[in-house]
C-alpha cells in the first residue's frame, strides 16, 4: 500500500459518501445518472466475486463489501425510494453500447481464460467507460449542481491516483498490469474535460455550466 493508492481509495470512498449524502439530504437524485450507477453496481459485482474465493486483508474485504453494498444502495435510492426525482428524460444513454463491447473485449483480451478472470477483466473495461452516461446527462442538461461536481471530481481523481500508484509500483516493485493501466488511462482521460471545468469554474464558486 502506497500513498497514491491509499488516497485513491479514500477519494473513491469520499465520492460514494458525497453521492449518498446528496441524495439522502436533498431527498432527490436529480442530475445523477441512474444508468452510470447501474454500471457501477455491475462493475463491483463482477470484480469482487473473489471475495468468495480469496482472502487478501481485512482492509481489502471491508472496502470491497462497502463498494458493492453502496452501489446497490444508490441504485435502490434512485429507482425505488426517490424514483420520482430521477431525471429519466435526460438519462438516455444506451448502456448496452458499453456493456456489449466490454464483454467482447474481456473475452478476447485477458490474462487467463477462466470465469473469474474474464469477469474481473470485464469489470476493468466497463469501469473505464461507466461514467459516460453521467457525463452525457450533464452535457444534455448543460449544467451540474456543485455537489454533483464534487462527486465527479472525487470519482475521477480516484483512478488518476491509481495511475500514479501503478507508476510507483512499476519502479518500486517491478510490478505492472497492462490491462488495468490502459483501462485506467482511458477512464482518466474521459474526465479531463470535466476536470478543466471543475478547476476553472466550480472551485471559483461558480456553478458548472457548459458553454452554450
Amino acid at each position: 500500500m502506497n500513498i497514491f493508492r491509499l488516497f485513491g481509495d479514500l477519494s473513491h470512498l469520499l465520492a460514494i459518501i458525497i453521492l449518498l449524502l446528496k441524495i439522502w439530504k436533498t431527498r432527490s437524485c436529480a442530475g445523477i445518472s441512474g444508468k452510470s450507477q447501474i454500471l457501477f453496481a455491475i462493475v463491483y459485482t463482477s470484480r469482487y466475486l473473489d471475495l468468495m474465493t480469496t482472502y487478501i486483508s481485512a482492509y481489502n474485504t471491508f472496502m470491497k463489501i462497502v463498494f458493492v453494498a453502496t452501489s446497490y444502495a444508490t441504485v435502490f435510492l434512485m429507482y425505488m425510494k426517490f424514483k420520482a426525482t430521477y431525471d429519466r428524460n435526460h438519462d438516455t444513454f444506451r448502456i448496452e453500447f458499453l456493456i456489449v463491447p466490454a464483454v467482447i473485449l474481456a473475452l478476447v483480451i485477458n490474462q487467463e481464460f477462466t470465469v473469474l478472470e474474464v469477469l474481473w477483466t470485464f469489470s476493468i473495461y466497463l469501469e473505464s467507460v461507466a461514467i459516460l452516461p453521467q457525463l452525457f446527462l450533464v452535457s444534455k442538461t448543460g449544467e451540474a449542481e456543485s455537489i454533483t461536481s464534487h462527486y465527479l471530481f472525487a470519482l475521477g481523481s480516484y483512478r488518476a491516483l491509481y495511475l500514479l500508484n501503478w507508476v510507483y509500483r512499476y519502479y518500486a516493485e517491478d510490478h505492472y498490469d497492462l490491462i488495468a493501466i490502459v483501462a485506467g488511462l482511458v477512464q482518466t482521460v474521459l474526465y479531463c474535460d470535466f476536470f478543466y471545468l471543475y478547476i476553472t469554474k466550480v472551485l471559483k464558486g461558480k456553478k458548472l455550466q457548459l458553454p452554450a
Binding site: R5, D9, H12, D50, T54, I56, S57, N60, M63, K64, F67, Q111, E112, W120, Y162, N165, R169, E173, D174, H175, Y176, D177, A180
Partner: peptide
C-alpha cells in the same frame, strides 16, 4: 510481473 498483485487493489 505478477498479475495477482493487481487483485489486491480495489
Amino acid at each position: 510481473t505478477n498479475h495477482s498483485l493487481t487483485k489486491d487493489e480495489l
